[in-house]
Simulated scan of single mutants.
Amino acid sequence: MDRVTTDRRLSMTQQLVVDLTQQILAGELPAGSKLPTEQVIIKERGVSRTVVREAMSRLQAEGLVETRHGIGTFVVDTARPGDFQGSKHVKGGAYDALAVIELRLSLEVEAAGIAAQRSTPEQLQAMREALDAANAFEATDDESARVDFEFHLQIAQCTGNSFFIDAMAHVGSALIAVIQQAGPAVTVENRALVIREREQIYAALARRDAEAARASMRLHLINMLQRIRGVVELTAQ
């Protein structure tokens, strides 16, 4: 198999993984639901059997699905005991959210710089759509954490690096859970600032300015840390 064919297959696998991950995190494919059969995915997506099987293997490795031989592939409960997740208490959720944001700082800053250099026009358009969806949500909406994460997941996808994509997909369910448990770090008062921070990230990516993309992402995540620390301080009182 030549390099071009291999790269194309890997790209299609990554896209399928990201799409299915987003559907699972969004609840479109809830825990216990059965994924479409291999034949259906091949027909609907126009991909090969190898692409589908590699995508399923990645989703299984990330703990999002499980295959029951002779029956099919099912979405697992991502909130099972023993999985990485926030405390059921608000204070625990806030502290867990801080830990996840610290992890994202080590991951997403460089991802943004790489994405600025590698993103395609089609990926930038998908990112623009994800950003518009995130900006449209009210700060207090329970789904705001999920749609914000989808924007960040699109950035990871733009790196073309399966390790960035898999890492972001893997922390997705934990990230959304702990932020929702921590309470709204994005409030009515700071919503405009959050939107401006995300727009700065996108603008840097669109003009392919890697250093500005890194700086904008770092600022956004550091500010997010400060906002969540505010939640921690309130709950500690």
Rank of each mutant, 00 (worst) to 15 (best):
R146G: 00
D83N: 02
L59G: 01
R58M: 08
Y95D: 11
R146M: 05
D141F: 08
A61K: 13
S87E: 15
G183R: 11
K91L: 15
L107A: 05
M168K: 03
F164W: 04
A130K: 08
A139K: 12
D166H: 00
T67D: 04
L59D: 07
A111C: 11
D142G: 06
K91W: 12
L103H: 12
D148V: 03
H170W: 04
L175S: 08
H152C: 07
L107K: 07
A130V: 06
F163E: 02
A111Q: 15
I71S: 05
I101S: 06
A169M: 09
T187G: 15
L107E: 05
T50W: 07
R58Y: 10
G92L: 13
Q154T: 01
E110I: 05
I165T: 05
T120C: 06
A134S: 06
A156R: 02
S119I: 08
R128N: 11
T140G: 08
Q157A: 02
G113R: 07
I114D: 12
N161M: 01
A182P: 03
G63N: 01
A167G: 00
V65H: 09
A145D: 04
E110M: 13
A115Y: 06
F151N: 00
K91G: 03
P81H: 04
A126E: 15
D166G: 00
A174N: 10
V52Q: 14
Q157D: 04
P121T: 15
A169K: 01
R146I: 03
Q125Y: 06
I114Y: 09
T159S: 03
F163W: 05
I114M: 10
N161S: 01
M56P: 05
P184Y: 13
R80P: 00
L64R: 04
A134D: 08
E143G: 04
A115P: 09
P81L: 03
D142I: 10
F164V: 01
R146N: 02
I114G: 10
V147K: 07
E108G: 03
E110G: 14
V109D: 06
V186Y: 14
V178I: 14
G86E: 05
D166K: 02
D141E: 07
R68I: 10
S48Q: 12
D83T: 05
D166N: 07
Q181H: 13
V47N: 10
